[in-house]
Simulated scan of single mutants.
Amino acid sequence: MSELALRSLAGLVMVMIALLAEWLGGTVFALFVAAAATGIYYEWSRLVKGWGVGWHLAGFAYALLPALALLWVRERAGVPAGAKGFELVLWAFIVTWSADIGAYFTGRTFGGLKLAPSISPNKTISGLVGGLIAATLLGGIWAQSTHLSWPWLVLAPLFALASAGGDLFESWLKRKAGVKDSGSLIPGHGGVLDRLDGLIPVATLTGLAVLAGLQ
C-alpha cells in the first residue's frame, strides 16, 4: 500500500471514530477526548524530556484546555434552548480537517514558496492558502446548513489560520527535540500529537467563542 493510501485510510478511520464518539456524546465522547488528551500529554512529555518541569506543566495545560473546551461545548453549550453543542464541535472538526487536507493536497499540487522552511521544510504558502479556502468553504457550508450564527462564517478562516499555527508549533517542538514524529501510533501519520496539533488551538478558541456567547 502506498504512503498516500495508508495515510488516507488511517485518516478515514480516525474521522469515523471521532464522528461516532461526538454523535454519541456523553460518556463515550468524554472517554474519547480523555484518551486523546492523555496521548497528547504522553507524547509531549517524551519530546520535552530533560527540558525542565516548566515544559511538562505547559504540556499539561496544552492537553487539558482543548479537551475541556470540547467537552464543555458538546455537553454544556447545549443546555440553553436553541444551543448547538453537537453542531459547534463538528464545526471545529470540519474547520481543522479541511484546513489540514486542503493544505496537504494544494501544497503537493502547486508547491512554490516555503511557508517556514527553518521549522517545517515541506509546508508551502500555497498549501496554507488552499487550507484556508477549504476551511472557509466547508466550515461556512456547515455553519449555514445548521443555522449557526453568522460570526462562525468569519471565524472559519481565522481558526484555520490558528490550526496552521498549531501545526507549525508542533513542527518546531519536534525540530527542537530532534525527532521526525511525535510518536508512531497512527500508520502514515505518526503520533497523536501529529494528528491533533491543529485541533488543539481550534478547540480552545471554539470554547472561548462559545463562552463569549456565540451559538
Rank of each mutant, 00 (worst) to 15 (best):
A69D: 00
K49I: 00
G54E: 13
L158V: 15
S120Q: 11
E43V: 02
L19V: 15
I141H: 10
G52V: 12
T27W: 13
L88C: 07
L65M: 14
T38D: 00
V154N: 01
L64G: 03
G139W: 06
L24Y: 12
T124L: 05
K84G: 00
Q144R: 14
L138N: 06
M16I: 15
I17A: 13
W142M: 08
L138G: 03
A103R: 02
V129Q: 04
V154D: 01
G102N: 05
G130K: 08
A99Y: 09
A77C: 09
A143D: 06
A103C: 06
A156G: 12
S118A: 13
L148S: 10
G39V: 01
R108K: 15
F86Q: 05
K114A: 07
L132I: 13
A143T: 04
L64T: 14
M14N: 07
R74I: 00
L158H: 05
I125D: 03
G130P: 11
G127N: 02
A81F: 14
W72H: 09
F86Y: 14
L57K: 12
T106G: 02
P157L: 09
G131F: 05
F93C: 00
K84M: 05
L137H: 08
I94S: 01
A30G: 04
W72F: 12
L138I: 11
A36G: 13
A34R: 01
S120N: 08
W91Q: 02
L132K: 07
A36N: 02
V89T: 07
G131A: 06
L65F: 14
G52C: 11
A116W: 14
A30R: 08
G102S: 04
A36V: 13
A63Y: 00
P157R: 11
L115I: 11
P121I: 06
L19D: 09
I17E: 02
M16F: 15
W72E: 02
I40Q: 03
V15G: 07
I17W: 07
G131Y: 03
G112Y: 12
F60K: 00
T136S: 15
G111C: 05
A116D: 05
A99L: 10
I94R: 06
A34E: 00
A37T: 10
F105C: 05
P157C: 09
G139H: 05
S145K: 09
V48Q: 08
L20E: 12
V73G: 01
I141T: 12
A92I: 08
P157S: 10
W23C: 04
L115D: 09
G140C: 13
S98F: 10
L31W: 15
A67V: 03
I133W: 11
T106W: 06
M16H: 09
I141R: 12
V95K: 01
